[in-house]
Write a protein that binds this DNA or RNA. Structure first.
Length: 920
RNA sequence: GCUCGGGUGGUGGAAUAGGUAGACACGCAGGACUUAAAAUCCUGUGGGCAGAAAUGCCCGUACGGGUUCGAUUCCCGUCCCGAGUACCA
């Protein structure tokens, strides 16, 4: 009886879908467990073999948890808004909804073949109005809240208005934009428009002018994490800086909490580190310098983490975009400064990066006074100071900051060393160590003492105060695109007015073309009558991360039409227990989602402060390309081992017509018409291809479709092989060379149940040795699954099978539990065997077999005995032994006795069950 | 530059509260079955030396040191690879 995986898999997949085997409901009698995959963007290319890696792992874990008696929520959906569908629409005129629908159908087909245990009744798609209604709702909620720094939580905007009405804003401690102080009377005297402008500075979703990453080729703004090295992540177009009025989310308000709560999560250290770096907390002081342009005096505020170096501040630098530039530029420097500002603004982000070592700058004409040395120091303008961080102005300490050092050297500004014995002839001394000098009252202190001492003095003399700065910026939330969630906002006399909740969802209108308009407006400007009660609606749409920020909540209660998630469903499922996905979302989705969740937590909509308790990052699967070598100027191809004797060109060949690096010659001739009459120079009658690890992409012909693996080997082989490939977190090339081994295992496992060609297992009682094989496997498998070490788990099955074959065991008592153990990895074959074993209920309803220590404990061991660390012989000894017993046994033993003859024993080291070392 | 990972056979990878390095699998070589192939099964497989053989000895976890009876594992230094980040004051 052959292992007919095609038939078996088809049969069980249709059973699972008919019987809705994996549908879950809230059930208070069982503990819950929520396993989530990062939902995919359904691209036109379909799934390749790399996509399911994480899905397989999460599916194994889900099935395992079910076997352990948990009520497992394991849903799947689609992140369906996105740029590729829109780009495709621009090119073809096809509505993105149509192509997205088609792609989703294809994805579903491919996913189904692998045998995942998703509860598809909970599927969500971010582009459907019933779903994005709640994305829009969350945006309106943010619009209607402000962040109170005193209580460290979001509060209704009405509470703020109340405070303004009675106290003005002097006692309000909020995360907000620049607002002048006003009294209650002033507030009450303001007109509606003026009030709205003030409130906008406080809202958590707000409209504000910022410098944004503008991508001219895509005609849209991009978030920082959508840009890499000045190039757009999608499409690879150059990106430049531009000032624009955009909707933003006040993510920065949550910086401290986003940072602190990382400690409560079971994420990898490297991922937490990435988030910590991205949030970028730094502790220092804000200080005021008196500056004068010769006519007027100002207080110029700067931020520094090195207040201790104040005595070495020999000049100041403003960012070119700083509002101070205009005030501090003197008449005779104006021409030069204007030219520099123009030069700096023309540069794209990319050019700035490329010239990061080039020193540029211009003198403003103004001077500041160093409050400690009372020296007059010049104020310069340079692009190495960023407008968006701190106050956009710095005090420059060239001796102890490398950037200031290069600048001072270039423009010949004084450099004063502040640390005893430091050498600053070639470069600055940036380390925070050593003893202070040239620094007045700080002299003789170590740097570590001097930093707080200097800030204390600054505060005492009212020159400034302690301050924590974050690198994390507010998230820009507007995109000038079509295929995204419309903003539920309209404009009445230039005032942004939210729609009411009962007017949601605001559906995306149909338009005839998906490009921006000729006048540069977003595509929604093309929609007919894009208005609300005659007032114009917002024309931007929301970015990709909007729809993915709260999808894990929607899965808990996907059909709810009155709330994002009901209180009951939320309190049952709480948060994601296990989240599996790629590390590329570390500073995007995983920050936004945490922010979004914390906001909903503040407003009492969700019961957990963090969305994803444990997170595993699966590695990327790279492509493994194959090459053939064409002899130049001919249609002859030479095998890898012989290619050095010819002058050849390396050509990518489709990996699907290569097996174990051997080329299928017939298939090769059919593959490309040019090669129909190709000739081959073979070695040992075979054509061996070269190979290299590259990105999986169509152009390198190294894309492997999981469907092909399912056709040839079956889904169970695919699942086990992907796990067997190596540790889950590690990136590795897809390499089919080993897949036969896993497939062979499944065939051998299957054959174990067919002793005499017909199905049947022995009902005899198992021996102690056989039980040992089983219980070793139970122990190992459970440990490995809990540790996500699936590759060693697969190995454990192979070892157990080898051992069973060795003792020729096909007893029910051993095989039945093994079927259950294997079912998370290879569900189809397990279900089939389970039912053939005479069980009507599916495997998943059976209890997971318990590990029994009794069957794995041995009463005697073969101990390797070493003398002075050198291994000599093995002695069989009982499990518990004393030094005297070991010595006696060793002296009696024929082989070891010669090493002990006449030797005096210093000590005997016993490492339980491992080794005995006798030191002579 | 900074931060975090990682360097183990021909290949993917096992083994780290320090304890027989190379599990398991691929590949390769030889053998059995077969008219033949496929499938299946068995044996060998880090390198070197000695031996007819059983076997024994030496060297081996990027490189150089250190701690230890004992280091792939811990510490110091060097080199290389990968990921993230980039003028964040």
């Amino acid at each position: 009886m052959e292992y007919n995986f095609l038939e078996i898999e088809k049969h069980w997949q249709s059973r699972w879908s008919q019987e809705q085997t994996f549908k879950v409901k809230e059930d208070n009698s069982k503990p819950k467990f929520y396993v989530l995959d990062m939902f995919p963007y359904p691209s036109g290319a379909g799934l390749h073999v790399g996509h399911p890696l994480g899905y397989i792992a999460s599916d194994i874990y889900s099935r395992y948890k079910r076997l352990k008696g948990f009520n497992v929520l394991h849903p799947m959906g689609y992140d369906a808004f996105g740029l590729p569908a829109e780009q495709y629409a621009i090119q073809t005129g096809q509505h993105p909804a149509k192509t997205t629908e088609k792609n989703i159908a294809r994805y579903r087909e491919q996913l189904d073949r692998i045998g995942f245990s998703y509860d598809w009744s909970r599927e969500v798609r971010t582009c459907e109005p019933e779903y994005y209604k709640w994305t829009q709702w969350a945006f309106l909620e943010m619009f209607a809240h402000w962040y109170n720094n005193n209580t460290q939580s979001a509060q209704k905007i009405e509470t703020l208005i109340k405070i303004f009405e009675t106290d003005g804003n002097k006692n309000v401690c909020a995360a907000c934009g620049d607002v002048a102080l006003f009294t209650a009377d002033e507030w009450n005297g303001m007109g509606e428009k003026e009030r709205e402008e003030v409130l906008m500075q406080y809202r958590l979703a707000y409209l504000g002018e910022t410098s944004v990453n503008w991508c001219p080729a895509l005609g849209t703004v991009l978030a920082n994490d959508e840009v890499k090295e000045g190039i757009s992540l999608r499409g690879g177009h150059p990106v430049e800086q531009r000032k624009m009025k955009q909707w933003q989310l006040r993510v920065s308000a949550y910086a401290e909490r986003l940072l602190n709560d990382l400690d409560t999560l079971e994420w990898t250290d490297s991922l937490k580190d990435m988030q910590r770096n991205w949030i970028g907390r730094s502790q220092g002081a804000e200080m005021i310098f008196k500056v004068s342009n010769g006519k007027e005096e100002f207080d110029l505020e700067i931020f520094t983490t090195r207040a201790d170096t104040i005595f070495g501040a020999t000049f100041m630098v403003l960012a070119p975009e700083s509002e101070w530039v205009e005030r501090l530029t003197t008449a005779d420097q104006k021409a030069e400064v204007d030219e520099y500002i123009k030069y700096a603004s023309r540069k794209t982000e990319r050019e700035r990066m490329a010239e990061t070592k080039k020193v540029t700058g211009v003198f403003s004409g103004s001077y500041a006074v160093n409050p400690f040395t009372l020296e007059k120091i010049p104020v310069w303008i340079s692009e190495y100071v960023l407008a968006g961080y701190g106050t956009g102005a710095i005090m420059a300490v060239p001796a102890h900051d490398s950037r200031d050092y290069f600048f001072a050297k270039h423009f010949n500004l004084p450099i004063i060393p502040l640390i005893e014995g430091c050498d600053i002839s070639q470069e600055s001394f940036d380390a925070k160590e050593g003893v202070m000098c040239n620094s007045g009252f700080l002299n003789g202190m170590s740097v570590k003492e001097a930093i707080p001492a200097a800030i204390d003095e600054v505060e005492r003399r009212a020159l400034g105060k302690r301050k924590v700065n974050f690198r994390l910026r507010d998230a820009i939330f507007s995109r000038q695109r079509y295929w995204g969630e419309p903003f539920p906002i309209y404009y009445k006399d230039d005032i942004a007015v939210p729609l009411t909740y009962d007017q949601l969802p605001l559906e995306l209108p149909d338009i005839d073309k998906y490009l921006p308009t000729e006048s540069g407006e977003p595509p929604l400007a093309r929609a007919e009558n894009w208005t609300h009660n005659g007032y114009p609606l917002e024309k931007s749409t929301m970015p990709g991360f909007a729809g993915s920020s709260a999808y894990y909540l929607r899965y808990m209660d996907p059909q709810n039409s009155t709330a994002l998630v009901s209180k009951e469903a939320n309190e049952y499922w709480r948060s994601v227990d296990l989240y599996i996905g790629g590390t590329e979302h570390a500073t995007g989705h995983l920050i936004y989602s945490r922010f979004w969740n914390k906001f909903l937590y503040d407003t009492g909509r969700v019961c957990e402060a963090e969305p994803f308790r444990k997170l595993i990052n699966q590695g990327m699967i790279q492509g493994r390309s194959n090459f053939v070598y064409r002899v130049k100027g001919t249609n002859k191809f030479v095998s890898l081992g012989l290619k050095d004797s010819y002058d050849t060109t390396e050509i990518h060949v489709d990996v699907n017509i290569v097996h174990n690096d051997k080329l299928d010659l017939a298939a090769f001739k059919v593959w490309m018409p040019d090669y129909a009459d190709a000739e081959f120079i073979l070695e040992n009658d075979e054509y061996i291809c070269g190979w290299a690890v590259e990105k999986m992409s169509k152009s390198m012909f190294n894309v492997v479709n999981p469907d092909i693996i399912c056709d040839n080997y079956g889904a169970d082989t695919l699942r086990m092989y992907e796990m067997f490939l190596g540790p889950l977190e590690q990136s590795k090339p897809w390499d089919t060379n080993g897949i036969d081994g896993v497939h062979r295992f499944l065939k051998r496992f299957w054959r174990l149940f067919f002793a005499d060609k017909t199905f049947g297992v022995s009902e005899e009682r198992a021996t102690a040795a056989e039980l040992k094989i089983l219980h070793k496997l139970i122990k190992k498998t459970q440990e490995d699954i809990e540790n996500f070490s699936f590759n060693t788990s697969v190995s454990a099955f192979m070892i157990a099978l080898n051992e069973l074959y060795e003792v020729n065991c096909n007893k029910r008592e051993i095989l039945e539990p093994m079927v259950i153990l294997l079912s998370p990895f290879a569900p189809h074959i397990s279900e089939e065997l389970w039912s053939r074993l005479g069980h009507t209920q599916s495997v998943s309803l059976a209890a997971f077999p318990e590990f029994n220590a009794e069957h794995t404990i041995e009463d005697s061991f073969e101990y390797p005995v070493s003398f002075n660390g050198k291994l000599r012989y093995k002695l069989t000894l009982s499990a518990s032994l004393t030094a005297a017993e070991i010595e006696a046994a060793a002296r009696e033993n024929e082989q070891t006795s010669k090493y002990l003859a006449g030797a005096s024993i210093k000590k005997i080291i016993v490492v339980p069950k491992k080794i005995i070392n006798i030191v002579c």
